[in-house]
Nucleic acid binder design. Structure first.
Lengths: 194, 194
DNA sequence: CTTTTAATTGACCACTGGTTAATTATAGTG
DNA sequence: CACTATAATTAACCAGTGGTCAATTAAAAG
């Protein structure tokens, strides 16, 4: 009554994570269930619990991965060959792009404050923010206070959290994103020069 | 096996709406259920369905009410006795205050794009936004484009959607809100005068 | 005092979802 | 080949959800 799969079809952590990611692209995280992940993988939902202690552990691995991705993205953009203002705009734009192209993950990373999100991911969020703040500081030739940079982040976050669910990919909101980024940058430029 | 309540204890639409509001203050809307509303009211959940067709109808009445409240708030602030710049800041601040003091309602009003929110409330959201845009336009002595005003709204929305769940009342974020509003206003002031 | 009428109950349905214990087939090992 | 560790299946449990409806009963109307 319980045939085991051939070795070639054996379930791996990676397969489960990948399928979860796939579902995250279509639904928000609340609607991604262990049972449905299993169904799509063609395995029983119980099997997943052999590889992951519980749902939280699975989801946590995913967001950890995405915090790394975001950090890498920020570094990469900051170290690019363009001039500082272009790079600053790119930091803003690529943050938005990241948020809109990984909406469910972004939600877990920056929008949930409930029990679902534990202190570990709060810490990861803070670290990513610090990276962001440092990038903005170093790319701007204006006097920006800590509060200014925070407001910039909030403004970008606002864009992502408004358009998420409304568009499914960054490109659909790209024009609006560029306009928003220009608004922010023009505000930054009004600050006194260093 | 089914005693009916005395007249003095009879259920009314208002009681149900009020209890739903109370629950909205503690939990986000996803976790407010017909069953729990009934439990707190000391009635059976079936009783609620005598007064409301379904959950959507109940929730919709609540957000309708809140769109009206927000509209009134915007009018009130715009028509105040202060000078334009103060009033502009107040419009921003009170929008944030509204969002943080009615978090679940704000979520339904401006954050949900799923099936849960129908086209009717989308329309109400647009109307409220138009009111906001007009207020900003009329209170600003600078040349603001449609895109600029949209960016301002997004920046405010960002504040609300970041702090919601993190603080439970506006006052807890008031200092940060003032700082954010000042950031926005200083950006506005860098635009050419009319 | 009797008949309406209106409000309420509670059982029921059909779901979704996480989690776990018992079970069994397979793969690797000696 | 036998044995064991492993990886999977199954079924059940538990807790919740929105929603429906016949039966009941309190209050209102006559």
């Amino acid at each position: 009554m319980s045939p085991r799969k051939r070795a070639s079809e054996e379930l791996t952590k990676e397969m489960i994570l990948k399928e979860a990611q796939t579902q995250f692209e279509k639904k928000d995280f609340q609607n991604v269930s262990m049972r449905n992940i299993a169904k799509q993988l063609g395995c029983s939902h119980g099997a997943i619990y052999y590889h992951f202690k519980n749902k939280a552990e699975l989801f946590y691995m995913i967001i950890e991965e995405h915090f790394s991705k975001l950090n890498a993205l920020l570094d990469e953009t900051t170290e690019g060959p363009e001039n500082d203002e272009t790079k600053l705009k790119n930091v803003f734009l690529r943050f938005i792009e990241f948020g809109l192209n990984h909406q469910s993950q972004y939600e877990l990373m920056f929008m949930l404050r409930n029990k679902e999100v534990d202190s570990l991911s709060q810490q990861a969020a803070n670290e990513s923010y610090q990276k962001f703040a440092q990038a903005v500081q170093s790319l701007s030739s204006n006097q920006l206070t800590v509060a200014d940079i925070w407001s910039i982040f909030i403004a970008l976050h606002g864009f992502v959290s408004y358009y998420r669910g409304f568009v499914s990919h960054f490109e659909e909101a790209e024009a609006a994103a560029i306009s928003h980024v220009n608004f922010i940058v023009s505000g930054v430029k009004s600050k006194p020069k260093l």
